[in-house]
Design a protein around this nucleic acid. Sequence first.
RNA 1: GGCCCGUUGGUCAAGCGGUUAAGACACCGCCCUUUCACGGCGGUAACGGGAGUUCGAUUCUCCCACGGGUCACCA
Length: 485
Amino acid sequence: MSATRVVTRFAPSPTGYMHIGNLRTALYAYLLARHHGGTFILRIEDTDRQRLVADATKVILDTLRITGLSYDEGPGVGGPHGPYVQSERLDIYRRYALELIEKGAAYYCFCAKERQEEPEPGEALGGGYDRHCRYLSKEEVEARLAAGMPYVIRQKMPLDGTTVFYDEVFGEIATENKELQDQVLLKADGYPTYNFCHVVDDYLMGVTHVLRGTEYLTSTPKYALLYDSFGWPRPHYVHLPLMMGRNGDGSVSKLSKRHGSVSFADLLADGFLPQAILNYIALLGWCPKDSQTEFYSLAELAELFTVDGISKSPSVFDFDKLLWFNGEYIRRLPFPEFAQAIKPFLRTPLPDFVDLDRALALLHGRLDKLSLIDEKMAFFVQVPPYETALFCNKKNKVTEEQARGYLAAALPVLEGLTEWEGAALYQAMTELAARLDCKPAALLWCLRIAVSGLLVTPGGATEIMAVIGRDESLLRVRAALDKLS
RNA sequence: GGCCCGUUGGUCAAGCGGUUAAGACACCGCCCUUUCACGGCGGUAACGGGAGUUCGAUUCUCCCACGGGUCACCA
């Protein structure tokens, strides 16, 4: 497919849950690598010791396993460029940071952290760090190091000129170097910043294509400069349009925790299928050549995936559409798999008279989310309280009076049935309708209300009766007759 | 606020100088039907504004407006 080797990586921070935007980045990186027969790497970026969350790495691994985004190198599977966890590579970063100082592309900074504080919300930025230590003499630096003063290492940005880089999605982007701050590469605690270690790792691990959200677009010149300083070839940059969420006030912003259930785990718990989620987010920011919308496998997606199908503009996450995809995928599931998948969501114990498989078969085609199963199943367990007015049906011109008549006529027929099964029930009832000289639909309508207590049900009267069985059905019809008297 | 990026129906989006401006979700209608759903058919709905370039701009350029992102010893 491509003459050049393609190596991509997914490099999340174990700082909480796997967000859906993050998952999409992983998906695209995976697809690009697979499309070209390349390598997909997983790297854990745990250099922020404050934000570290205990089980977050497990969440990441679980997510990749569940979604089938298998990686060729990374924690657990190893590879030629390990370790793949940044906290285990500290000596490497220090070595390269020192190399940069030697090359005159970085410098020690002994200034207090307060010298460059985050600007107050709403306040215009003053200008950041004033580069005080950039101009320290070699002797001053030596003296302070010898005195054991704490320090950070900063990148020395060009003071004038322009840095240009090429992005595969956005094209050429030029930045005035005077806009770039002397960012910290190595923190006082000895850990590197993302700004530094991701560059070192990407180079060392042979990453050829860097995929990430556009929130990194404005800082990419700094990374490109880092590559240049080392004399390394820059990777291909592929910046992905952001996934947006709607805020309470109707505005949109970067999808994050405040928009509700947008973590992969939350979606699973809410009854979404992994493949449906993947299918939906694949299309948020990317479109295949022929605008195909449904994909049957990751392999099929990988075959179609190309960078030129990635869009530039941010997209709003639409739960309704995800829901539709989910329904599609649920319906597509072979019944045994559906029955298996629905299990964890069946929380209400079912009475003996309910034939579970038959009930599930009825529900299979009518669920958008697995978590809806209990709610849809409830009337099988127990008839909800209902008004006799439910029996009235305009289209079939049924009155309560007629309903009583129909049910009274149906009861003995049902009681006399030897075979309690859908087709037999249906046949018996249509025959009865002919005898009563009424439309089958009218009779079946009344029967359906009687055995369900609901206006809208999954399946018709005879199907429901087949599910709940003879005794319960007769019980419900008699109860309905009482109600109507 | 500076800088960067974006702007096709409510949403996701195709389009890459000449089209009746695709398709999907949602919505509406009809059909199918043992209610609903599924399925089938059909419908409503879009190129932010203004200048250029051109025989011709949704497509190219510029300006404006709007939206978003970013300015950390977070990633």
